[in-house]
Design a protein around this nucleic acid. Structure first.
Lengths: 129, 129, 129, 129
DNA sequence: GTGGTCTAGACCACG
DNA sequence: GTGGTCTAGACCACC
């Protein structure tokens, strides 16, 4: 999994890192039960402070995407069913994207075909079960 | 158009306001050519400082969603076709949402049905023609 | 001389109008001694307030580009030699443009060829004398 | 780099500051990769509010002249090639300057020699390579 | 009336 | 340390 961070973006590094890890897992680069790099390793690879990586891992843990074990380090969680909080957040964000797309002249078929194309890339850990 | 801001959110007020206005226009509450409240009026209605509103309006102008006329204040822009920068941003954000949904156990049909349902709400200016 | 104003520009209308008139005279659309439209006519043609046109004409008069006579209205002034204030302003603005061009990777030959091409368009009133 | 602002000018401070920084970089006072003063430092040096400096830096960032890194502050961007929007803006402004010069009785050779003299001062980052 | 600028100073987030 | 946000309120320019 390649991590690419934009230091001059206005999105905080820990958020960029969190997003890239989530996308990476979604793409199947890392499956349920497999290990993420250690905090120090990740910090070194990405050229950032280990406090930043630690913060990212804690967030991913709180979101249920990874588990942290003192002995094994961080591992990808098995798939869990979406709770209502997630569904609400998903709908809010999709509504914003829909509005933007609509105001940029995009028609429904085009929007849905992009959604379809992109979701098709995903290989959730556990989907092969 | 009702604006509701969460003062304790970590999303800046001007971003929340920007998102709500975009969503509101997308939902058809305001059509192309119609006026937004004046900077001062919006500031008073939303209970925030007028510089914060001004910043939001400047961003919406830069994104092409509104026009600001010295005489008439701010009005909704006509629909303009998506440029490549927007499409790229859209794909990146959809990929992140797809990954999250997938890791939350959502299947493609379910995800697409949500996308469909939400986009169907949009009433782009000009669609009634 | 066609005047095109952008109402949603952040350049004030009276400045846009002033610039377009200067450029128009420079291009030879109007020669020394010839009349500009009356304030009211110009206001009507451009769809703006006559106070705005009046302000523009006063500025052009102060800059020495036109003369205003109660009976004949506004006419184009004969060419006058540049004073030191103008030369200084010209150098300052050219330095800014040069810096921008240079930082955008433009080389001297390219910059000068653009300057040459554009100046060649000018037909100053009186140059045919 | 010396910054001199005219508080009684009708050009906004943040624009004056932006212009002086661009000219300063163009003159080679600051090269690609080098740091600008921090927002607070610049504000103190120039005797203005830090939000004004912040606004200037945001504009320079949007124009591609500087990069802002949470860790290192603001640094000069490497030279990037001019896009069509810039070329158009450059031509419009040069045409206005040409018209003014022409109406002030300046001849083409004189105008071009000033352009040449002024551009020759510029030291684009990378030109020493 | 409208938006735009600027200030002084507080407070927060990031790394 | 850095930049980013927000406020309250003053003042100005434009139309």
């Amino acid at each position: 999994m390649i991590i690419s961070l934009d230091m001059s973006s206005d999105i905080p590094i820990y958020v960029q890192l969190r997003n890239q890890i989530v996308t990476g897992i979604g793409r199947g680069y890392l499956k349920a039960g497999e290990s993420l790099p250690s905090v120090r390793q990740m910090a070194q690879d990405a050229g950032i402070n280990s406090m930043t990586v630690n913060k990212t891992y804690q967030i991913l843990k709180a979101e249920g995407f990874i588990e942290i074990d003192r002995r094994k380090g961080a591992t990808v969680s098995p798939v869990r069913r979406a709770d209502s909080a997630f569904r609400e957040k998903l709908e809010t964000e999709l509504e914003l994207l829909s509005a933007e797309a609509s105001l940029k002249g995009m028609r429904k078929e085009e929007f849905l075909s992009i959604c379809d194309k992109i979701f098709a890339r995903m290989h959730p850990a556990g989907s092969e079960a």
